[in-house]
């Protein structure tokens, strides 16, 4: 499967590169972290209590399904965090970073 989300409009924005699980990806300025990842991938992370993947649910900061990790620094809520160039994101905690 390719990305989960599909761009229908507003494609004329500057490109930003970022990194997700060690892979270099490109999205657009104004994308949220969630959009930027899900344009390329089917999920943001694996569920902690089941076998399924997770890709957010409410997109409005209410369900907390979309928390992911950074290579260094705190976790972030992907649906309400704007993408910044050079972000280094992860679907799972890095090394001994506390979940």
């Amino acid at each position: 499967m390719n990305g989960r989300l599909l761009r229908l409009a507003e494609a004329e924005r500057p490109a930003l590169s970022f990194r997700f699980d060690g892979e270099d990806l490109v999205a657009l300025d104004g994308d949220t972290v969630l959009s930027a990842i899900l344009i390329h991938k089917p999920r943001l992370r694996q569920a902690e209590f089941g076998p399924e993947g997770r890709a957010g649910f409410c997109l409005m900061g209410a369900c907390q399904d979309c928390w992911i990790w950074q290579e260094d620094g705190p976790r972030l809520r992907a649906c309400s965090t704007p993408l910044r160039a050079g972000m280094r994101l992860r679907s799972a905690p890095a090394g001994d970073w506390p979940a």
Partner: peptide, 25 residues
Amino acid sequence: WQSAGVYTLGAAQIALKAQGMALGR
């Protein structure tokens, strides 16, 4: 409904309005 790719209706609207995106094909 716990699977990735299941969203709320509000989410579908936010993806479209605030990001110009559809949640799937």
